[in-house]
C-alpha cells in the first residue's frame, strides 16, 4: 500500500503496450483536425470529457469493487466502434500482464482467467490500482490522464510537433482533468450502489468513426 505506486502505474513508460496507440490522434491528424498545438488541445479536451470521463469512472468503479464482468459489459455498451472495443481489449490484455507482474493479486489472476483475450483497459487499470492499494480517484486520474497523454505524445511523432508545446497542452488541461476525475469518482460511487447503469455514457462520434476509418488503412504508424 503505497501512494507512490500511482507514479509507477501512471508512468508513460509502464510496459503495457500504450506506446503503439495514438488514442485517435493518427486519424484526426490525417483528417486535418489536428494540425497544431491549439488543435491538439481541442482534440484532447474533447476526448477528456467523453472517453476520458467514461474510462475514469470505469477505473474508479473497479477500485470500489464493482464486479469486473459487469464493468466490462458496461464498457462494451459505451463503445460503439468495434475497432475501439478491439483496441481497448488488446490494451487491457497487455495491462493485465504487466499488472500481474507488478502487483500480484487473486483478483488480477481471476481477471486473466475470465478474460484471456483481455477486458476493457480502464477496467483492468482499476483492478491494477486496487491491487496496488490505490484509491478510486487515483485510478480515475490514471485513466483520464492517459486518454490525453497518449494523443499528445503520438502527435509529437505524427506532426513533428514541438514536444514542449505538446506537453504544455497537457499542463493546461490539468485543472479540467481534476474536474473530470471528480465527476468520474462520483459516478463510480453511484454505480457501486445502484449498478453500472449509473456510469457516464459520453462518447465522441468522431473518435468512434475515426477509429473505424483508421482500422481499414494499410499504412499507419499506430495500432489505433
Amino acid at each position: 500500500m503505497s501512494r507512490a505506486a500511482l507514479l509507477v502505474l501512471a508512468d508513460g513508460r509502464f510496459p503495457a503496450g500504450g506506446h503503439a496507440h495514438s488514442g485517435g490522434a493518427e486519424a484526426a491528424v490525417k483528417a486535418g483536425r489536428i494540425t497544431s498545438a491549439a488543435t491538439l488541445e481541442d482534440f484532447c479536451r474533447g476526448r477528456l470529457h467523453t472517453a476520458g470521463l467514461v474510462a475514469g469512472a470505469l477505473a474508479a468503479a473497479a477500485v470500489l469493487g464493482v464486479e469486473p464482468a459487469a464493468l466490462d459489459a458496461a464498457a462494451d455498451a459505451r463503445t460503439p466502434s468495434p475497432a475501439l472495443r478491439n483496441a481497448a481489449r488488446r490494451l487491457g490484455r497487455q495491462l493485465t500482464r504487466a499488472a500481474r507482474a507488478c502487483w500480484p493479486s487473486p483478483e488480477l489472476e481471476a481477471l486473466a482467467g475470465e478474460f484471456p483475450r483481455g477486458a476493457h483497459q480502464p477496467v483492468v487499470l482499476g483492478l491494477a490500482a486496487r491491487a496496488a492499494g490505490l484509491a478510486p480517484g487515483d485510478a480515475a486520474y490514471c485513466a483520464a490522464y492517459e486518454c490525453v497523454s497518449g494523443p499528445a505524445t503520438a502527435t509529437v511523432r505524427l506532426l513533428s510537433l514541438d514536444p514542449f508545446d505538446a506537453t504544455g497542452v497537457l499542463a493546461r488541461l490539468a485543472p479540467e482533468l481534476d474536474r473530470v476525475v471528480d465527476r468520474a469518482v462520483e459516478a463510480a460511487r453511484r454505480a457501486a450502489d445502484e449498478g453500472v447503469g449509473a456510469l457516464p455514457a459520453a462518447s465522441g462520434p468522431l473518435l468512434e468513426s475515426g477509429a473505424e476509418w483508421h482500422a481499414a488503412w494499410s499504412v499507419r504508424l499506430f495500432a489505433s
Binding site: 503495457a16 503496450g17 506506446h19 503503439a20 497487455q94 504487466a98 503520438a154 505524427l158 495500432a223
Partner: peptide
Amino acid sequence: VETGACPHTAIRDDISANLE
C-alpha cells in the same frame, strides 16, 4: 505486430504486443 513508430520500444522497452 504494430509498433507505433518505435520498433525498438516494441522489442525491448515494452514487449507486451510481441509477447501476445
